[in-house]
Amino acid sequence: MDLRKIEESVFKFLMLTSVVCVVGSLLFILGTVFIKGWHALSLDMLVKTPQGGYYLGKEGGILNAITGSIVLGIGATLFALVLSLPLAVYLNLYLRKNSRRAFIMRFFLDVLWGIPSIVYGAFGFTVMIFFKLQASLLAAIITVGLLILPIMARSMDEVLKTIPFELTEASFAMGATRLETAMQVVLKQVLGGLVTAVLISFGRGIGDAASVLFTASFTDSLPYSLFKPVATLPLAIFFQLGTPFPEVQERGYAAALVLAILILAVSIAGRLISGKFTRHVLR
């Protein structure tokens, strides 16, 4: 057999093995969390807040963390949305295609994307000290919002890039301003893609723990005020695994399953939804 053919098949085998490893690792992660978490999961966990001594193995649940994470996620997503939507519109409608400014903005967003969440957390902490604020839901919303801002803005930017220039041109030719073009023509075309970007960022926001460690603190009560600490699911998992009691750790696994399912549901919904909202799309 030809040596080149052997080389070809050896490398093809290596590549296939790699693909199996990568795909397998996702199945391995989900499988592990599912198997370990499933039998520790109970209805009590989902509908009760921690009672006294919950972290010592007593009664209660993690409703405080579930609601806290969702409220925090929604708040942070809204905060990021208010900043990223104008940013994406600005990049695509207000700046010319190859303008220096757009180039720099995209570069900065990419760099911000790569900064680890613990650094955002530490930065949020310095800002809190500067303004003499306590750890609170508000501080966490701002920190997580800034963390997911580059993700959301860049995804929206990529979506808006797909709009053909002829469409905007036609709208301008009718005498519409750039704002009117954006609001009434362009954004309607890409609504599905924008919703996907928002959902993916939401999933990232509720999953992150390092940035809320400093800024959200933790509490056993449900979120009720913007200026009070808030519990989050990732930290609840982390704290439960940190206890020396096996039964509390088991509940930590169950909480991890809840978080994994929540994030999977959001990101799968995000992917399915991009095909929806097509009522106004021109074909």
Partner: peptide, 16 residues
């Protein structure tokens, strides 16, 4: 699969 791996929470990776 690659996208989902990117979306999984770091804490879930830790539990795994």
């Amino acid at each position: 699969v690659v996208d989902l791996l990117a979306g999984i929470s770091p804490v879930v990776y830790g539990v795994w």
